[in-house]
Amino acid sequence: MVFEKIKAILAEQFDVEEDKITLETNIAEDLGADSLDVVDLLMTLEDEFDVEIPDSEVDNIRTVGNLVKFIEGNS
């Protein structure tokens, strides 16, 4: 469920097909996200899942799988 929601958000924000997004998808390398994109994405996810992603965690979130794991563990 979390993964499906994240996939939909990423597909919309980065204009990619949901089918191309896997848990191994690297947010910066595979989706072309720069630092502003990441901040925007994290704010969207915080609102969607009612969770706070601290700045200290941002460096640890490189892949879609990292995002799913963080949100599932903190929501």
Rank of each mutant, 00 (worst) to 15 (best):
L23Q: 09
S35P: 05
D15Q: 14
T44Y: 01
L10F: 12
L23W: 00
D37W: 05
T25W: 06
D15L: 12
G32D: 06
E24C: 02
E29N: 15
V51E: 03
E24F: 13
T44W: 05
E46L: 04
A33Y: 08
K7N: 03
T22P: 08
L10H: 02
G32H: 11
K20I: 11
E48T: 05
D30I: 09
D30A: 11
D34M: 03
E24T: 04
D50R: 12
L42I: 13
E29I: 14
K20C: 10
K5F: 01
F14K: 02
N26F: 09
T25F: 06
F14H: 05
E18L: 07
V38G: 02
I27V: 14
E48Y: 08
I21P: 00
A8E: 12
K7M: 08
E12R: 15
I9Q: 01
M43F: 13
I9M: 10
K7D: 00
F49Y: 05
I27Q: 04
K5Q: 14
E46V: 05
E24S: 09
T22N: 04
L23I: 11
K20L: 10
V51P: 06
L31H: 03
A28L: 14
M43W: 03
I53N: 03
E17V: 08
E29K: 15
D40Y: 11
A28F: 12
F49V: 10
T22H: 10
F14Q: 03
K5M: 07
I9F: 09
N26R: 15
E17F: 06
V51N: 04
V16W: 10
I27M: 01
D37F: 01
D37Q: 09
L36H: 07
E18K: 06
V16K: 10
D47A: 12
